[in-house]
């Protein structure tokens, strides 16, 4: 259970460039919820995910995860509870380390690191099994440096790393946006499979409306730093892209045209 109340975040406070990225976000996430998040550019989606991950302190509000108030926890400490996949495939893995070293580091997420061997022989079998699920042949390339992998391979590996130690919350921020359509679809299938079989509580940001409707059990829309739409279970199943666009236009009081990028998505 995650509960966010009154989350506010402004950047460049007191400066002419001040922007309020989040202006009071409330969200209750039930265990096992798979929520897709949409919204136009600059709506605050990434800021929201980054705030949950603890990348910066928030100006107001509270984040409670499974009864523990983690509002003041630093990012590295929250990492024990949260798995992440970024938009940039380069961010999720360590290029200079091998596949098995990356997995070994991920296998210790939130656990104490000691002076034992970094990669243990018995872990290798486990890593091979997990890698085989990706269907990319990486299970035979344990000693390959991840810097040599393609963006899609790295993103699939990051997905695996983020879930190797079961996270209480999985955060995916446009994690297929930087990939070509085919690779993106592969990573998305993988997401569906891992989240589905492990029943992970997940927040996934996407600009693709069809994706947002097809995946997960709940859909929320950000607009100007707030959640303006929250569509759940049954209602979401029957949702069509046109409905979504209509409701977005209604919300804006018919004052504007829905952004191109959202339409195209």
């Amino acid at each position: 259970m995650i509960s966010v109340t009154g989350m506010i975040k402004a950047f460049n406070k007191g400066d002419v460039n001040e922007v309020t990225a989040l202006s009071g976000v409330d969200l209750e996430v039930a265990d096992g919820d798979f929520i897709t998040i949409i919204g136009s550019n600059g709506a605050g989606k990434s800021t929201f995910l980054n705030a949950l991950a603890g990348m910066f302190p928030i100006d107001a509000g509270r984040v409670v995860l499974d009864g523990t108030d983690i509002t003041r926890w630093p990012e590295y400490k929250r990492a024990a509870l949260i798995g992440r996949v970024f938009q940039d495939p380069l961010l999720g893995t360590c290029a200079g380390a091998t596949i098995e070293q990356n997995l070994a580091m991920a296998n210790k997420r939130g656990l104490k690191r000691g002076l034992g061997k970094g990669v243990r022989t018995r872990d290798r079998e486990f890593f091979r099994e997990k890698l085989a699920v990706l269907g990319l042949g990486l299970e035979d390339r344990l000693k390959t440096h991840t810097g040599l992998l393609s963006g899609g391979q790295r993103q699939a590996l990051t997905m695996l790393m983020a879930t190797l130690v079961r996270p209480k919350l999985l955060l995916l921020d446009e994690h297929t946006a930087a990939l070509d359509p085919k690779t993106g679809a592969m990573v998305l299938d993988l997401t569906d499979e891992i989240v589905g079989t492990e029943k992970l509580t997940t927040l996934m940001v996407t600009h693709n409306m069809k994706e947002a409707i097809a995946m997960g059990n709940r859909l929320i829309m950000f607009h100007r730093g707030r959640i303006v739409l929250d569509i759940k279970s049954e209602e979401k199943k029957n949702l069509r892209v046109e409905d979504l666009l209509q409701r977005f236009a209604d919300l804006r009081g018919g004052d504007g045209v829905v952004s191109d990028r959202m339409l195209l998505g």
Binding site: Y76, L90, L91, G96, A97, R109
Partner: peptide
């Protein structure tokens, strides 16, 4: 090598 990655792994 990648500070964001290792922070996300809890270091």
């Amino acid at each position: 090598d990648n500070m964001q990655m290792i922070t996300s792994q809890g270091v």
